[in-house]
Amino acid sequence: MRHIGLFFGSFNPIHTGHLIIANYMANYTELDEVWLVVTPHNPLKKKDSLINQYDRLEMVNLAIEQAPNIRSSTIEFSLPQPSYTIDTLTYLREKYPNDTFVLIMGSDNLISLPKWKNYELILRDYHILVYPRPDYQGPTELSEHPSITVTDTPLMEFSSTFIRNAVKQGKDIRYFVPDSVKAFIESKGLYR
């Protein structure tokens, strides 16, 4: 039985912060592996800022080539849009009955969790590992919940929005994203 952490995201684009969080969860918690679940459309985000899901997936795959216990997942590509986490979890549980799944989310998402579809079922049936986010440091009403563990993951102060804006302004994004992802963004002229 594998203990799998699910790190959902638009990964628009994936950046070093995502990779540090995934690596921390895969190596400093009880998880056996972490799946980066590329979300075609998050119901709480505007869709027009998203580039093609296959380009986002390709950048994830380029970024994790050297990571033995981190992999990408396209599970939501074949599910109805927009994707609701509870539906994806139910599907994964049926498809991989011998594995246990743990949610990985930022402290900002923990605050909005009560807005999620069937969030009570998520709290009842799944463990959630929370990583800190800037401006969302303090305890929330949910942080004491028995299904939730707040981790000591290093705090990341930049975002995919920062990267997209930097590319748009012609700024250097070296070290913010892996070299392979930087080359892919440049070769396809993404975010210009």
Rank of each mutant, 00 (worst) to 15 (best):
Lys95Asn: 06
Lys95Arg: 11
Pro97Phe: 11
Pro97Met: 09
Asn98Ile: 05
Asp99Phe: 10
Thr100Arg: 11
Thr100Tyr: 08
Phe101Asp: 07
Leu103Arg: 13
Ile104Val: 13
Asn109Val: 06
Leu110Tyr: 01
Leu110Cys: 07
Leu110Arg: 07
Leu110Ser: 03
Leu113Tyr: 05
Leu113Asn: 03
Pro114Lys: 12
Pro114Ile: 15
Lys115Ala: 12
Lys115Ile: 15
Lys115His: 13
Lys117Asp: 09
Glu120Asp: 15
Glu120Arg: 11
Glu120Tyr: 15
Ile122Met: 09
Ile122Asn: 12
Ile122Cys: 14
Tyr126Glu: 01
His127Glu: 09
Ile128Ser: 03
Ile128Cys: 13
Leu129Met: 05
Tyr131Gly: 14
Arg133Val: 12
Pro134Arg: 14
Pro134Glu: 14
Asp135Thr: 10
Asp135Gly: 06
Asp135Tyr: 15
Gly138Tyr: 08
Pro139Tyr: 04
Pro139Leu: 14
Leu142Gln: 11
Leu142Ile: 10
Glu144Trp: 15
Pro146Phe: 06
Thr149Leu: 07
Val150Glu: 02
Asp152Leu: 07
Asp152Gly: 07
Thr153Leu: 03
Thr153His: 11
Thr153Arg: 11
Thr153Met: 08
Pro154Asn: 09
Pro154Lys: 10
Leu155Ile: 15
Met156Ile: 14
Phe158Leu: 03
Phe158Gln: 00
Ser159Glu: 02
Thr161Asn: 15
Thr161Lys: 07
Thr161Ile: 04
Phe162Gln: 04
Phe162Glu: 05
Phe162Ala: 02
Ile163Glu: 06
Ile163Thr: 02
Arg164Val: 00
Arg164Lys: 07
Arg164Ile: 01
Asn165Leu: 03
Asn165Lys: 06
Ala166His: 04
Ala166Gly: 04
Val167His: 00
Lys168Ser: 03
Gln169Asp: 00
Gln169Asn: 01
Gly170Met: 01
Gly170Ile: 01
Gly170Ala: 03
Lys171Asp: 02
Asp172Met: 04
Arg174Asp: 04
Tyr175Gly: 04
Tyr175Met: 05
Phe176Asn: 01
Phe176Val: 00
